[in-house]
Every structure is written in C-alpha cells, then in structure tokens.
C-alpha cells in the first residue's frame, strides 16, 4: 500500500463517516475545553503552569464515580433518575476537584508565594504535586483499577440519529454540560464582582491589591472555578472510559495544549482551543499509521509546535486581564 493511497483512504473514511468523527470530536473537545479553563485561569492570574491540574481532574472523576456507585449500585438508571444522577455526579466531581485544587494551592503554591520563591520553584512544586496526587490515587484505589461510575444510563444508548449517524446520549450530555459550565465560568469571570477581581489581579496584582482586591481570596477563587470545571469533566470522562490513577496525565497534556493553542490566560481561547484539539484529534484518527492512535498525538503536537512558532500567543492571544 503506497503512501498516497494511505492518505487517500484516510480522506475516504472521513467522507463516509464524517458525522461520526464530528460527534466524537465534539465530545472530546468539550472535555478538553472544560479542563483547559483551569490551566488558563491559573496561568492568567499566577503566570504559572499548574501541572497538577490533570490530576485534579482525575480525582474529581474518582469522587463522582464513587458517589454514583454508592447511590445506584449495580442497576441501570432510567428517566428522572438519570437526570438526578448526572447532576449528582457533576456536582460531586466538581466538589472533590475543588477540594483537591484548593488543597494544592494551599500546600504547594501559597507557602512559596509567601517566601517569594523564584518562578521555577513553583513549576517544580507543581510537578511534585502532580506526581503526589497521581500516585496517591494509585495507592488508594489500585494501580490497575479502571473504575467506571454507576450506569446512569444504558451504556452505548443512542439518543437520536442524524444523517444516518447515531448520536450517543453520552455525547449529548457531555457537550451540553461542557457548554453550560463554560458559559457559567465565562459569565463569572466577565460579569461578576469576583470575576472583576480575577481580571484585576491578572492585569496587575500590586495595583489591584492597593485598590482593595484580596489577592489570596482571588487566587483561591480561580482554583475553585478551574477545579469545578475539571471535576465535572472528570465525571463525563469516567462515564466514557472509566477513571484510572493515571488518567489525568494524557488528558492534562491535551488540555494544556488546548489552552496554549487558544492563547493561554484567555478563557474563551481555552474553550476554542479545546474544541479545535478535540475535533482535530478525532479527524486525525483515519490518518494514524497501522491504526495506532499514538500518531494522533504526534499530529496534535506538530500542530501545537507549528502554531507556537508562527503565532506564539495562540489563536485568540493571551492575557486574561484584557480579553477574558
């Protein structure tokens, strides 16, 4: 099979099942976008890559999975029970992730801020927190355990069919939940007093503290918002493929890529970047040699490197303070 033939057959696959790839891409994109918001907010305010964010996401997934399993047990939910359980899972995931994210801020970042540590120290501390959270989950929940939440709706259930392509319930719920949480986060940052505080600190922390913004509270708030979205995404992700101790690593890197692609520090950029990475990753699948999905990773990073070299501030540009 020649090289050209391989690429042509890839395009052929996309032509045949365009809609299926699109829906998968939208679903992944919503997840990436939700996680990317956490990276972007923290970066905007602290100028820091929060390496532990992927693991915050993973802990939220575990929390939601345990809660739904505890409520429902082995049966399958239908009707209103499904709606209730989805909300319960989202909220529980969000709460656990908020707890973990704020804990990371308190333990790994705040003491360093007090001591005026150099920027690299923060990065190392973040890497340490990431290793710690990841391995702690492995230790407590088992290194080989892939935990699925309870079946809040029948697995593989399709909601309706578009263009001869079945649309899964999971896709709809993920995209809707993603869109809703993103809109809420966007409104929060843009239109409330708390959000104004976040933007003010992102623009100029010293001046904003002179103007009466409580910097520590604002920083905690950014971790809360980021954590809530990551936890909700954790629940959605665990419904799709179960949650494991190291689930946060790969998703975290993709989401971070999304945040950079959209312009790190920019909330809408993160949402856009997440969608782009999700769709791109989905449509790149037919072009993976020998069906090996690691090629998708290679393509994604090539795109990232290209974007960064030619437009280093991402698609929408950085700076939370000005454009968020």
């Amino acid at each position: 099979m020649g090289f050209a033939h391989f690429w042509l057959s890839g395009f052929d696959q996309i032509r045949v099942s365009f809609w299926a790839y699109l829906f998968v891409g939208l679903q992944n994109g919503a997840l990436y976008a939700m996680i990317a918001v956490g990276y972007t907010l923290v970066y905007g305010v602290l100028g820091l890559i929060n390496f532990a964010h992927g693991d915050v996401f993973m802990w939220g997934g575990f929390g939601a999975a345990f809660l739904t399993r505890g409520i429902l047990g082995p049966s399958v939910a239908t009707g209103w029970a499904t709606v209730g359980l989805v909300f319960a899972g989202l909220i529980m995931g969000g709460l656990v992730s908020i707890l973990v994210a704020v804990g990371v801020e308190r333990v790994a970042y705040r003491p360093l801020r007090r001591r005026h540590a150099p920027k690299l120290a923060f990065l190392i501390s973040a890497i340490g927190a990431s290793y710690f959270l990841e391995t702690l989950a492995g230790k407590e929940f088992g290194y080989g355990t892939n935990l699925f939440p309870a079946q809040v709706f029948p697995v593989g259930q399709t909601m309706f069919t578009v263009f001869n392509t079945p649309v899964r319930t999971l896709t709809i719920i993920t995209v809707v939940a993603g869109a809703a949480t993103l809109v809420v986060a966007d409104r929060l940052v843009r239109a409330t007093k708390l959000g104004r505080g976040i933007r003010a600190v992102a623009q100029d922390s010293e001046t904003s503290s002179l103007m009466g913004v409580n910097i520590e509270k604002t920083i905690t708030l950014t971790f809360i918002v980021g954590g809530a979205l990551a936890g909700a995404a954790g629940f959605m992700y665990s419904l799709q493929s179960g949650i494991e101790w190291n689930s946060g690593v790969e998703l975290g890197i993709y989401a971070f890529t999304a945040a950079v692609l959209g312009g790190i520090g920019n909330l809408r950029g993160a949402a856009l970047g997440g969608m782009v990475i999700g769709l791109f990753g989905s449509f790149a699948v037919p072009f993976a040699f020998e069906g090996n999905t690691q090629w998708v990773e290679i393509y994604t990073f090539l795109i990232l490197i290209g974007v960064l070299i030619f437009r280093p501030t991402g698609i929408l540009g950085e700076k939370l303070g000005r454009t968020a």
């Binding site: 790994a108 391995t135 492995g138």
Partner: peptide, 22 residues
C-alpha cells in the same frame, strides 16, 4: 512499594521548594 515511589518524590519536591527552593 516501588509503585509508590513518585508519591514520596512528589511530597519531597514540594517540601524542598517550600524550605529550600534554591
């Protein structure tokens, strides 16, 4: 257990960065 190694390394890194960042 060797699986847990990075948990201790992670904790060590955070402590190190707090008390001896250089």
């Amino acid at each position: 257990q060797i699986n847990d190694l990075y948990m201790y390394i992670g904790a060590l890194l955070i402590i190190m960065m707090i008390f001896r960042p250089a």
